[in-house]
Structure formats: C-alpha cells, structure tokens
Simulated assay, not measured.
Amino acid sequence: MTGSVETAAALYLDHLTVEKGSAANTVASYRRDLARYAAFLESRGIGSLAEVTEPDVREFLVELRRGTPDDGVPPLADSSVARTLVAARGFHKFAAAEGIVRSDVAHAVRPPKAARRLPKALSVDEVLAILEAAGAPDHPRALRDRAMLELLYSCGARISEVTALDVDDLDTEHRAVVLRGKGGKERIVPVGRPAIAAVDAYLVRGRPALVKQGTPALFLNVRGGRLSRQSAWQVLVDTAARAGIEKEVSPHTLRHSFATHLLDGGADVRVVQELLGHSSVTTTQIYTLVTVNTMREVYASAHPRAQ
C-alpha cells in the first residue's frame, strides 16, 4: 500500500488494535483485506483515499466476486467477499469519522448475504470415541492431548482460548476456567469432572515431563514452550482418525457439538450464549436450527404418517 491510503490504513489498524481491542488474528485479517483493497485502488490509478468514489467501491465488490483470471486470482466465496468488503467499509467509515475524507463513500455498498451454513456436530458417542483415543498410550503427550480435548468439549472453548491458557487460569477445586475470547473478553466457564480429572492427570504425570523452562502455559509442546493453535488442531485431526471418525473434524466441530448437545439436553439458549462467549444471542440461535433439523429427520423416519 502506498501514499495516503497506506497512512490511513495504518491509522485504522492501530484503531482496531488499541481502541477497539480487536484480536490479533482479526487485525491480521483486516490488514490482508486492506492490502488487497489498496492494490485494487492502485490498479485504477487512485493514490489517495479522497479520490475514491462509491462506484470504485462497487467495482471492488464485483472484482472480488469474479476474480482476476488474467492474474490467476480466483473469485472469492460470498463469505470471503463479505469479510473483505466489511474491512473496506470499516476503513472508509473510520476515515470519514476522523476527518481524513469528507464522506463515507462505501456506506451504501452492501456485502452479499452468505448462505446460512449449519454447523456440523458430532454425536455424543463420536466425541467420546475421540476422547478415549486421545488418552492412549499413557505418556506425557497423550495425557496432554486428552486433557486439552476434554477441555475443548467440556467448555465449548475455541482452540485459541485453550492454547492461551495458563496453569493459574484453571481452578480445579471449584471446577472452573477463565477463558479469554475475542477482543480480550474474559468469561468464567464451568468444567466437567472428566475434564478436571484429565487435567489433574496431565499436571501430575504429563506436564512435569514436558516443561523445560519457567513458563506459565498450561499446554506445552515437546520443546517445553506453549503449544501452538496449529499443533493443537493437528492433535485433534490425528486423534479423530485413530478413533475411526470419517467426518471432517476441526476444533470448532467440538465447539459446535458442545452447543448442540447442551440444547438437545434442554439448556436455555441464553445460557449457551454465555458459555460460548457470543456477544449476541443471534449467533447462538443457529444451533437451535440444528436441533430442529434433527427432530425433523427423526420424525420423518419414525412416524408412520410423516410422509
């Protein structure tokens, strides 16, 4: 990015980091999206943010959806288009509010509505199979993996929240954990007895064999440092394969399963919202669609007059 676009973008990214407290991954995503937007503007001979017009922003939206075949850039999915345009819209809104430009030329340009995708949840038996597969054989890494996966499912935590845990974040006596979610927001979530037992076993027989330096991190890699998000993801994928799970499994799969199983068991959607750390109940309500769809399938297959 060059010229005043670069300067304005840097100010906006600083605003997201310092004033809004956006997560590092969010800021990195916005940085990539704004770099793409700046490159698009430069290709149109636009060097200053003040030169951008609403038609320019609309043309950027068109390019995202059709791609640039001559440059080998494929079109983006609607969800990615929406995310990229949200970054550009936020950028223009910020620039107008700060007086960098006179008006917000992107205000009327709306991102495409992505098709609503229902989260894929595992059955309780499938989750239990994964957890059992994580604990064998009994050695430090297996103890770590079992404790980590038990926590993911017991708390409905994001993978980044679990890998960021320090030993002191977990209160085994009161069976609770402090999770730090998006935007640095903290929430205290109860932990089930099996997860506490797995963590205790790891702390006693696993972590002491892995730790090599004074680190507060709960989950450690073989070098004694904090386990990365990518490594934790791979642990789940490998464990699911050992458990014979043929479905595609990711850390968010366990999070989806946590929410779905709670709602299936009669939990209130607002309680699930708090446990997941969602800022809006609307985000959580997508899980209620999963349970309704499950009921429809059972009804259609079991009721003699369903068809």
Rank of each mutant, 00 (worst) to 15 (best):
A35F: 08
P74Y: 06
V81R: 01
P55W: 07
R36D: 15
P75I: 01
P55I: 00
R58A: 09
F91C: 09
G67T: 10
A38Y: 05
F40Q: 01
F94Y: 13
E42L: 06
A97N: 13
A39R: 15
S43G: 12
L76I: 02
S79C: 06
A35I: 12
D70I: 03
T84F: 01
A50E: 05
R65I: 06
F60Q: 02
E63P: 10
R66S: 14
A35E: 13
V62E: 12
I100Q: 03
E63N: 13
T68L: 00
A77N: 10
T68E: 14
Y37I: 02
P74G: 05
A88K: 04
F94V: 14
S48R: 00
A97K: 14
L61H: 11
L41A: 00
R44M: 03
G47H: 09
Y37S: 09
D70S: 11
R58S: 04
T84E: 05
T68Q: 13
P74R: 06
V73E: 12
L85V: 13
E54Q: 11
Y37F: 14
V73K: 08
E42V: 11
L41W: 01
R65G: 12
V73L: 00
V86C: 08
V81P: 06
G99V: 12
I100W: 01
R65S: 15
R66Y: 06
F94C: 07
A97Q: 15
T68C: 00
L41T: 04
A88M: 06
A82L: 04
L64G: 02
P75T: 10
A39Y: 09
D70K: 08
S79Y: 11
A50M: 03
A88D: 04
L61F: 09
A39V: 15
R44T: 07
L41H: 00
E51R: 00
Y37A: 03
R44K: 07
L49N: 01
A97V: 15
S43A: 13
A39M: 13
S43D: 07
R58Q: 03
L76C: 09
L49F: 02
T68A: 07
V73A: 05
T53V: 07
P55H: 08
F60C: 03
S48I: 00
L34W: 04
F91T: 12
V52N: 02
D71M: 10
I46G: 00
V73R: 08
F91N: 07
G67C: 09
A88H: 11
R83S: 13
V86I: 05
D70G: 15
V62S: 07
Y37M: 03
R44N: 04
E98T: 12
R65N: 10
P55D: 03
V57T: 01
A97L: 14
V73N: 07
A95Q: 00
A38R: 04
R66C: 06
G72D: 12
S80L: 00
G45D: 05
R66G: 10
V81D: 03
A39Q: 13
P69W: 07
R44L: 02
R83I: 12
F60K: 01
A35Q: 15
D70W: 08
L64V: 06
